[in-house]
Amino acid sequence: MSAENASALLLELRGISASSGGSEILEDVSMTVERGDRVAVMGPSGSGKSTLLKVAAGLEPAGSGHAFFDGRDIATLGQREELDFRKRAGFGFQDGALWENQTVLNNLALPLRIHRPELSEPEIAERSRALLSSLGFTDSLGVRPATLSMGERKIVSIARAIVLEPELVFLDDPTGHLDEDARDRLYAVVDKLVRKGTTIVAVTNNSGFVRRFALRLVVVANGRVTYDVPMKVALAAEGLEPAARSVVARLKRYAERDRLDEIEERR
């Protein structure tokens, strides 16, 4: 089970469909993520990319299809396997999803207490503080999330996702709500993850983040994966520097065309 003798495939989605309140959000989505890969999932709002991420992380149930982590179906994990999976895969939520009734410190300390029982409370506090300050969060750790700004919440949430130093990190819109300063510090932290060979799956529409970290580009539109190529291919196809921008521009055209199709169909 250790990383050395396992296959290159870390995450695999097979024919995933998901629906909510009667409307389809994902339809027959399949994709794979290899160890050390860094995937940027892009697409228009409401295209289902957040849902895709949550299904892949086992936070939302798939209507049909299977998600595999390290060769195991995450829907049928036993208790130990589940704990192992959670320890190895962190999740940074779009809106922070901090535990409002816990202090900032506890928001980071809880995963450590569960997965690293060998650490003492001072060690846990020290780790949390160090990680947060590397992300530029210098406020007291004794406050509750309600007193934080959206940007600060986002930072704490990302810190919580990586505090266990997982091999796979899901990031849902990591740059949202962040100011320029915070974004730079986030990049620095992600740089560190990259150096450690962490696999990253990020849902984002920030071309700067994509251009800097992504090795692969996945475009989701209307619940389907419409584009899944290595970044190099995407970049080569469209030239160098303006390529990322044109990818976004093309996404917009996709969205527009799909929307027109839909309007056409409704008529």
């Binding site: 949550k54 936070l59 901090l98 569960i114």
Partner: peptide
Amino acid sequence: GHEIEAYISVG
């Protein structure tokens, strides 16, 4: 507030 998902995500 997705806090439940957050609990699940950390195990």
